[in-house]
Simulated scan of single mutants.
Amino acid sequence: MDITFSQVSERLNDRRFTVAGNTHGLSGTGTVFHYHVEGDAVWGTYQGGRIRIGNQVGRVTGPDTIELLFHCLTTEGEILSGWSRGTVGVDHAGRTTLSFVWGWLSGATGGGESSYVELVA
């Protein structure tokens, strides 16, 4: 396995994240993201808050970067899809962080920036 992929895998694989900031998006308080990584493939699920169920699929693009496509069904019955490009980091407490730039592809317009922090048991 390439070292680039293993660094992202170490920080994301089988880990859960919650929203730290997402002023223009649907995910928020109560939304939990669960990621998996295998080689350069990244995928996951998310739900909670306004998200009934969501899925993500993407790839590792660098030592600390990923790109994803996502789609979800909201609690209001909307189906939405979009894209995101993210950076994997670490905060002062040692928790993994994610920062994304994203945009809608279907069901809504616009986009924004969002950030997430690892949920530690």
Results as ranks from 00 to 15, higher is better:
residue 94 G to D: 10
residue 102 W to T: 02
residue 25 G to Y: 03
residue 43 W to A: 13
residue 104 W to Y: 14
residue 90 V to C: 14
residue 23 T to H: 07
residue 31 T to P: 04
residue 74 T to E: 10
residue 79 I to Y: 15
residue 40 D to V: 00
residue 65 T to I: 00
residue 112 G to V: 08
residue 32 V to Y: 07
residue 114 S to D: 10
residue 93 A to R: 14
residue 46 Y to W: 12
residue 49 G to P: 08
residue 40 D to Q: 10
residue 37 V to A: 13
residue 121 A to D: 15
residue 110 G to Q: 07
residue 84 S to L: 13
residue 16 R to H: 10
residue 88 V to C: 11
residue 96 T to A: 13
residue 46 Y to S: 02
residue 74 T to H: 12
residue 33 F to W: 15
residue 97 T to R: 09
residue 96 T to N: 08
residue 93 A to L: 14
residue 8 V to D: 03
residue 3 I to G: 09
residue 25 G to E: 03
residue 53 I to C: 02
residue 59 R to Y: 02
residue 4 T to L: 12
residue 3 I to K: 13
residue 121 A to E: 15
residue 89 G to Y: 09
residue 60 V to M: 04
residue 56 Q to S: 11
residue 100 F to W: 07
residue 67 E to S: 14
residue 64 D to Q: 15
residue 52 R to N: 11
residue 56 Q to G: 04
residue 66 I to W: 01
residue 103 G to T: 10
residue 76 E to L: 13
residue 12 L to T: 06
residue 3 I to W: 08
residue 15 R to I: 03
residue 105 L to P: 00
residue 59 R to V: 07
residue 102 W to A: 03
residue 35 Y to C: 01
residue 112 G to S: 09
residue 67 E to K: 02
residue 117 V to S: 00
residue 31 T to Q: 06
residue 65 T to S: 12
residue 25 G to C: 07
residue 103 G to A: 12
residue 117 V to K: 01
residue 96 T to W: 05
residue 83 W to Y: 13
residue 116 Y to A: 04
residue 115 S to Y: 01
residue 96 T to C: 12
residue 107 G to T: 04
residue 44 G to H: 09
residue 96 T to E: 02
residue 31 T to A: 09
residue 72 C to N: 12
residue 54 G to M: 07
residue 116 Y to K: 01
residue 47 Q to V: 05
residue 95 R to K: 15
residue 79 I to P: 02
residue 84 S to N: 12
residue 43 W to E: 09
residue 56 Q to R: 08
residue 46 Y to T: 03
residue 11 R to E: 05
residue 33 F to L: 15
residue 91 D to R: 08
residue 43 W to N: 13
residue 40 D to F: 00
residue 23 T to R: 10
residue 110 G to W: 07
residue 101 V to E: 13
residue 67 E to L: 01
residue 113 E to T: 14
residue 73 L to I: 15
residue 91 D to M: 07
residue 83 W to F: 11
residue 82 G to W: 05
residue 116 Y to G: 01
residue 21 G to C: 06
residue 15 R to S: 06
residue 27 S to K: 03
residue 58 G to F: 00
residue 91 D to L: 08
residue 34 H to I: 08
residue 15 R to L: 09
residue 31 T to W: 04
residue 39 G to T: 06
residue 44 G to V: 05
residue 72 C to Q: 15
residue 95 R to G: 02
residue 23 T to Q: 11
residue 98 L to K: 07
residue 14 D to S: 11
